[in-house]
Simulated scan of single mutants.
Amino acid sequence: MISELKRHGYNISPGTLYPLLHKMEKENLLAKRIEIVEGKKRIYYSITSQGENLLKKLRGKVKELFHEII
């Protein structure tokens, strides 16, 4: 996830990203799934319906702000 964000120009450290993911999970915006892959613990996050609803709301606010700036 960090390398994908970096590819888009965001330089985020694990110390910044993981607390955000944990907070979003606590707020029921993300769901966590743990799998063991080749003996290593892998954590996968997916968006919840509550997270989808917030994302739609925030996208609308960002679009509104963008149009006001432009």
Rank of each mutant, 00 (worst) to 15 (best):
M1E: 11
I2A: 01
I2M: 04
S3P: 01
E4W: 05
E4R: 14
L5Y: 03
K6M: 06
K6D: 00
R7Q: 13
R7F: 09
R7P: 04
R7I: 05
H8I: 06
H8Q: 11
G9R: 13
G9Y: 09
Y10I: 04
Y10N: 03
Y10V: 01
Y10E: 03
Y10P: 00
I12F: 07
S13V: 04
P14Y: 03
P14H: 05
P14N: 09
G15D: 10
G15H: 06
G15F: 03
T16N: 14
T16D: 11
L17H: 00
Y18C: 03
P19C: 06
P19N: 07
L20W: 11
L21I: 12
L21A: 09
H22Q: 12
H22A: 15
H22P: 02
H22D: 15
K23Q: 14
K23T: 12
M24K: 13
M24P: 07
M24R: 11
M24I: 07
E25Q: 15
K26R: 15
E27G: 01
N28G: 09
N28F: 04
N28M: 09
L29A: 00
L30Y: 03
L30D: 00
L30Q: 02
A31L: 11
A31S: 15
A31C: 12
A31H: 09
R33I: 01
I34G: 01
I34Q: 15
E35N: 14
E35H: 13
E35W: 09
I36N: 12
I36S: 11
I36D: 08
I36C: 06
I36W: 07
V37W: 07
E38R: 09
E38H: 08
G39W: 00
G39P: 04
G39A: 02
G39T: 00
K40R: 12
K40T: 04
K40E: 15
K40W: 04
K41I: 02
K41F: 00
K41L: 08
R42H: 15
R42Y: 05
I43H: 09
I43E: 12
I43D: 07
I43G: 04
Y44T: 05
Y44G: 02
Y44R: 12
Y45C: 01
I47L: 12
I47D: 00
I47K: 05
I47H: 02
S49H: 10
Q50Y: 02
G51D: 01
E52W: 03
N53A: 14
L54Q: 00
L55Y: 08
L55P: 00
L55D: 08
L55H: 10
L55V: 06
L55K: 08
L55I: 07
K56M: 10
K57Q: 07
R59V: 07
G60I: 04
K61A: 14
K61G: 02
V62G: 06
V62D: 06
K63D: 15
E64L: 06
E64A: 06
L65M: 06
F66D: 15
F66C: 14
H67F: 13
E68H: 01
I69R: 13
I70Y: 13
I70H: 14
